[in-house]
Amino acid sequence: MGLVEDMLKGDKRALSRVITLVENNSQNCEEILSKLYPHTGNSQIIGVTGPPGSGKSTLINHLVREFVRKGYKVGVLAIDPSSEFTGGALLGDRIRMLEVSLDSNVFIRSMGTRGTLGGISRKTKEVVRVLEAFGKDKIIIETIGAGQSDIEITRTAHTVIVVLTPETGDDVQVLKAGIMEIGDIYVVNKADIGNAEFMVEEIKALIASKSSNVSKEWTAPVIKASAKKKEGIRELVEQVEKHWNYLKVSGEINKLEERRVKNEVVDTLNRKISNYLLSKLESEFGKEIFDEILKRKESPYSVVNRLIKKFLC
């Protein structure tokens, strides 16, 4: 397998190929990831989320440019939904807008969700690991809207940027529930139109009200930005750096990394064990086992416990 070696030497085509193998869950996927694993763990993972139309892509473009200017190597993962019916996807290439996408230090990859939400976050996490191994300093994950999958993905991130815009007036109300708890940095984008100031204050108030049950010493800043006018970009970059620094100095990063690694182990365990046991289920008990449960002669619990006893203990 020269591919992994080539990739580790900095070959972009090899990197791209490796990502495909991981994404396709090809047979040597685990082998590849195992080989890469020692090289991971040095990147800042930045999740960018927010409702569609909030201008995430333009913001990310500027972010990437600033990172590159500072000499960082940057990877971007953009996630789009696949069609449930055909499996096809249009990966609208939102983030290839600037000249910067041709910079040798930038690598951009689009991914379709290809099935379940769980699937997407797992594959995204694995591809992030690949990019880490490739030596990207900053890895940005962009998702299309603020759904469950977005929140799931942000669990992988060290720094979560929530992008909102005053254009859709009820954003804050709508997002109060989920998104207001996950942000490390808030951006009020398109600040050149309308009620930006008001929105900033509103978000600050919300953060303050939640801060009582947050033990971290980090208070999420709220930044006014206009990707169009290139305003607020510097400040955003500064805050992203500051947050990274904070994570390292406070030791918070160790907790996050520990959580990530644990998650990886637990996820892998869950998946493999359940696949394993599922494969045994029918061969062991036959298809009738479901009838037995239907007739209430067995319960799901008794069946699973029998399986575990037989194959795992």
């Binding site: 249009l90 609208g92 939102r94 169009k228």
Partner: peptide, 10 residues
């Protein structure tokens, strides 16, 4: 004014 890159609407 900046240069416009249209979003790819599909």
């Amino acid at each position: 004014y900046g240069e416009y890159r249209a979003p790819n609407i599909l």
